[in-house]
């Protein structure tokens, strides 16, 4: 590497150079800390999410249960166990064949041409999306213990 240029004479005092280098070293330390911080969060994120989801499911189930008792049970029966004029939602047949998203749109938009009304504010109902989600969470929580009800679609009258 040809270097026939003489070193330029120093034009700044040595202490200035030294203090600059001290700052650069700190900069390096901070960068490492930033990296460690993000990685630390990323590593913990799945666990944090799981526990947040669990906590949310518990509270949504409670609130959803209350909402269901107040707004749905007159047709779908107490604790969704049927007996009214509408299908038995607490049945393995219904819960196993329907996804959360499907229940959400059934509740939000209702079933047109039947007694089942639309509940979401978006469709003229009274529920916020959050409330619909809570009811869905509640219904989903019934799944593990849902009985088999072959005639779940029929209301009492039809049986």
């Amino acid at each position: 590497m040809p270097r026939d240029r003489p070193e330029p004479p120093p034009f700044e005092p040595e202490w200035l150079e030294r203090s600059l280098n001290r700052y650069l070293a700190w900069g390096l330390v901070f960068m490492v800390l930033l990296l460690v911080g993000f990685v630390a969060y990323r590593v913990r994120e799945p666990g944090l999410r799981r526990s947040a989801t669990r906590a949310q499911t518990t509270s949504y189930t409670d609130i959803g249960h209350q909402t269901f008792s107040a707004s749905c049970s007159q047709c779908h029966g107490k604790d969704a166990s049927g007996g009214g004029s509408a299908p038995t939602l607490n049945s393995s047949q219904f819960l196993k064949s329907t996804t959360d998203a499907q229940i959400f749109s059934l509740v939000a938009g209702g079933v047109s041409g039947t007694e089942m009304p639309a509940w979401s504010l978006d469709y003229g109902g009274t529920f916020t999306d959050e409330q619909v989600r809570q009811v869905v969470t509640y219904l989903r929580s019934l799944e593990p213990r849902a009985p088999s009800v072959p005639g779940w679609r029929q209301s009492d009258k039809a049986k």
Partner: peptide, 15 residues
């Protein structure tokens, strides 16, 4: 460097 240090402190608090 001060900006990096500030960010590091905020990130530490946030984590």
């Amino acid at each position: 460097v001060v900006a990096l240090g500030t960010s590091a402190i905020v990130l530490g608090l946030a984590v």
